[in-house]
Amino acid sequence: MPVRRGHVAPQNTFLDTIIRKFEGQSRKFIIANARVENCAVIYCNDGFCELCGYSRAEVMQRPCTCDFLHGPRTQRRAAAQIAQALLGAEERKVEIAFYRKDGSCFLCLVDVVPVKNEDGAVIMFILNFEVVMEKDMVGSPAHDTNHRGPPTSWLAPGRAKTFRLKLPALLALTARESSVRSGGAGGAGAPGAVVVDVDLTPAAPSSESLALDEVTAMDNHVAGLGPAEERRALVGPGSPPRSAPGQLPSPRAHSLNPDASGSSCSLARTRSRESCASVRRASSADDIEAMRAGVLPPPPRHASTGAMHPLRSGLLNSTSDSDLVRYRTISKIPQITLNFVDLKGDPFLASPTSDREIIAPKIKERTHNVTEKVTQVLSLGADVLPEYKLQAPRIHRWTILHYSPFKAVWDWLILLLVIYTAVFTPYSAAFLLKETEEGPPATECGYACQPLAVVDLIVDIMFIVDILINFRTTYVNANEEVVSHPGRIAVHYFKGWFLIDMVAAIPFDLLI
């Protein structure tokens, strides 16, 4: 008679799926529990143990900040960024110097990925580790590398530091407007667009060049630039800015003055950032001319202004700041037409079709709590990747769950009947059967004279019903998954307890 339990259901295979997918890609990662103190490590794979030199037993239950890997060259700011990422709910990448158990130093890129439950609360953290440099290539500990984003994938490793954006290309926007319009339909740009040429040739750093990471940081200074100062900065030398009595002219307006920039070969870094931020506020060169004239017309309804409409929906549905990093990277690809469009465009503009998908598509409701890094690593669709929660398995109709209350009560009843059979069957065979043979035949009273025979008949009927119930009862397979398919249940029961239950259900007393 089957006594099969499996009270692990309803099970959740999400954690096993993450481990299996990460292991298949030869990654070095740990999984931490966000619900406990210090976000203790609950799993670390073999790749991480080989990377740091510690065994799994030495890593388990330690804080996922990996303070046991810190050393003299470990930056405090990087460690603080990892700790801050564990307090938030967004994906974050941090470069930090770690030390192995043998004392060797290596520069590592740590990717902190939160995993949320159905309520939107962070319950786990996945920390992925990628070695960037070994100890002989690690720089000085005073050099802070965590304020910069990861290198873009479309640049060669040897040319990542030679990417320079020439400031004269930004200063000569109005001069290039006529050349853009003359391109017409034969050019790649839309009317009114501004073409910015980027020099990728390796050259020595000069005062006129600005690194790509500095251009990325310009967006942080746009908020500090007032509207009046932006307007004066875009007017140009024809209309000098008016300053109040006793007030000095704005240095932001002076930063885009061609006369002032041409007199000296070098520009201050602050002026460069502010000038680029001011130019980015204009949607095209037409807006710059309109600002000089004193009238700013409404933005025209053409394809170039609607190019950012799908980007707005993608940004609203993005799951991490990696989408913004990807957008900034692609927006700086050289030799393309940049349409400086305000994100607050007309909502009635139709979304044009684009061959290049900048932001990841909208994630469906079932995966809105899973970050983009987890979705990318697992390579699963929205119909396959579940949320991290207890999910009731989908069972067929008329199927009994093996952990249901009805099955528990039924098993206790069958257990009592088995005990009765084990006690009274030998007793009936030894004593009652002998008395029946010696006594007179009682054929007239039937079952009324033999109450134990009636009980034995009921017990046999219950055993037959138990066999039928076992054909529709779920079970737990070797992978700790609840199986509810009727065919698989029948095959599993035939290979197991079916023969024993059938022999126990045969009414031998009635056959004798």
Rank of each mutant, 00 (worst) to 15 (best):
R4F: 15
G6V: 13
G6M: 15
V8A: 14
V8E: 12
V8N: 04
A9W: 14
A9G: 15
Q11P: 12
Q11H: 13
N12P: 12
F14I: 06
D16V: 09
T17D: 08
I18D: 01
I19D: 01
R20Y: 04
F22E: 13
E23A: 05
G24T: 15
Q25N: 14
S26F: 08
S26W: 06
S26T: 06
R27C: 14
I31Q: 01
I31S: 01
A32C: 06
A32T: 03
N38K: 15
C39K: 14
C39T: 06
A40K: 08
V41I: 13
I42C: 02
Y43T: 01
D46W: 04
D46V: 05
G47W: 01
C49R: 03
E50L: 12
L51H: 01
L51T: 05
C52H: 01
G53T: 01
E58D: 05
V59R: 01
V59W: 01
M60K: 01
R62W: 07
P63W: 01
C64V: 09
C64K: 01
C64F: 02
C66Y: 01
F68V: 01
L69H: 01
L69Q: 01
H70K: 06
G71P: 01
G71D: 01
P72D: 06
T74V: 01
T74N: 01
R77Y: 12
A78T: 04
A79L: 13
A80E: 10
Q81S: 14
I82L: 15
A83Q: 03
A83H: 04
Q84G: 09
L86V: 08
L87R: 14
A89T: 13
E91Q: 08
E95N: 08
E95F: 05
E95S: 09
I96A: 05
A97N: 06
A97I: 06
Y99S: 03
R100A: 06
R100T: 05
K101N: 01
D102S: 06
F106I: 05
C108M: 01
L109N: 15
V110L: 11
P114Q: 01
V115W: 09
G120L: 14
I123A: 15
F125Y: 15
F125P: 01
L127C: 06
L127Y: 01
N128M: 06
E130L: 03
V131N: 06
V131L: 12
V131E: 15
V132N: 14
K135I: 06
K135S: 14
M137A: 15
M137K: 04
M137V: 07
S140A: 10
P141F: 06
A142V: 14
H143M: 13
H143D: 08
D144E: 11
D144S: 14
T145E: 03
H147E: 08
H147T: 09
R148G: 09
R148V: 14
P151F: 15
W154L: 13
L155K: 09
L155T: 14
A156E: 15
R159S: 08
A160T: 05
T162Y: 06
L165Q: 13
K166R: 12
K166A: 06
L167R: 05
P168H: 06
L173H: 15
A175K: 14
R176C: 05
R176D: 06
E177F: 05
E177R: 09
E177G: 15
S178R: 15
S178T: 10
V180F: 15
V180W: 04
R181F: 06
S182Y: 15
G184W: 13
G184V: 10
G184N: 14
A185V: 12
A185F: 06
G186R: 14
G187W: 11
A188D: 06
G189T: 05
G192I: 01
A193F: 05
V195L: 05
V195Y: 05
V195I: 11
V195W: 01
V196M: 15
D197V: 01
L200Y: 15
T201G: 14
T201L: 06
P202V: 01
P202T: 06
P202R: 09
A204Q: 06
A204C: 05
P205H: 05
P205T: 05
S206V: 09
S206R: 07
S207I: 15
E208S: 06
S209T: 15
S209F: 04
L210Y: 03
L212G: 07
E214Q: 06
E214W: 04
T216C: 03
M218A: 15
D219S: 05
N220T: 06
G224E: 15
L225A: 06
L225R: 15
G226L: 10
P227L: 05
P227K: 11
A228Y: 06
A228V: 12
E230G: 06
E230A: 09
G236K: 04
P237W: 04
P237V: 13
S239F: 09
P240Q: 07
R242W: 15
S243C: 08
A244M: 11
G246L: 15
G246Q: 05
G246V: 14
Q247A: 11
L248N: 12
L248W: 15
P249L: 12
S250I: 11
S250F: 15
S255A: 07
N257W: 12
P258N: 11
A260S: 07
G262T: 09
S264Y: 08
S264T: 07
S266N: 01
S266Q: 07
S266E: 14
L267C: 13
A268H: 07
A268D: 03
R269C: 14
T270A: 12
R273S: 12
E274T: 14
C276N: 14
C276K: 07
A277S: 14
V279I: 14
R280Y: 07
R281S: 07
A282Q: 15
S283Y: 05
S284Q: 05
A285V: 11
D286V: 12
D287T: 09
I288E: 07
E289D: 07
M291F: 11
A293V: 08
G294Y: 12
G294E: 12
V295M: 08
L296F: 11
P297G: 11
P298C: 13
P298I: 05
P299E: 07
P300K: 07
A303L: 12
S304E: 09
T305F: 11
T305D: 07
G306M: 06
G306L: 08
M308E: 14
M308T: 06
P310E: 04
R312F: 05
R312L: 07
R312Q: 07
L315K: 07
N317V: 07
T319E: 14
S320A: 11
D321W: 13
S322Y: 08
D323W: 07
D323T: 09
L324A: 14
V325M: 14
V325W: 10
R326H: 07
Y327S: 12
Y327A: 12
R328K: 15
T329L: 08
T329K: 06
I330S: 07
P334F: 01
Q335S: 08
I336M: 12
I336V: 14
L338Y: 15
N339G: 12
F340C: 07
D342V: 01
D342I: 02
K344R: 05
G345N: 01
G345P: 08
D346I: 10
F348K: 14
S351E: 14
T353Q: 13
S354G: 14
S354L: 05
S354K: 04
R356G: 10
R356C: 12
E357C: 14
E357M: 14
I358C: 12
I358E: 07
I358L: 07
I358R: 11
I358Q: 08
I359H: 11
I359M: 05
P361N: 14
P361I: 09
P361Y: 01
I363M: 12
K364F: 06
T367M: 14
N369L: 09
V370A: 05
T371Y: 08
T371I: 13
T371A: 14
V374D: 05
L378N: 03
L378H: 01
G381C: 15
A382R: 13
A382Q: 15
P386M: 02
P386V: 01
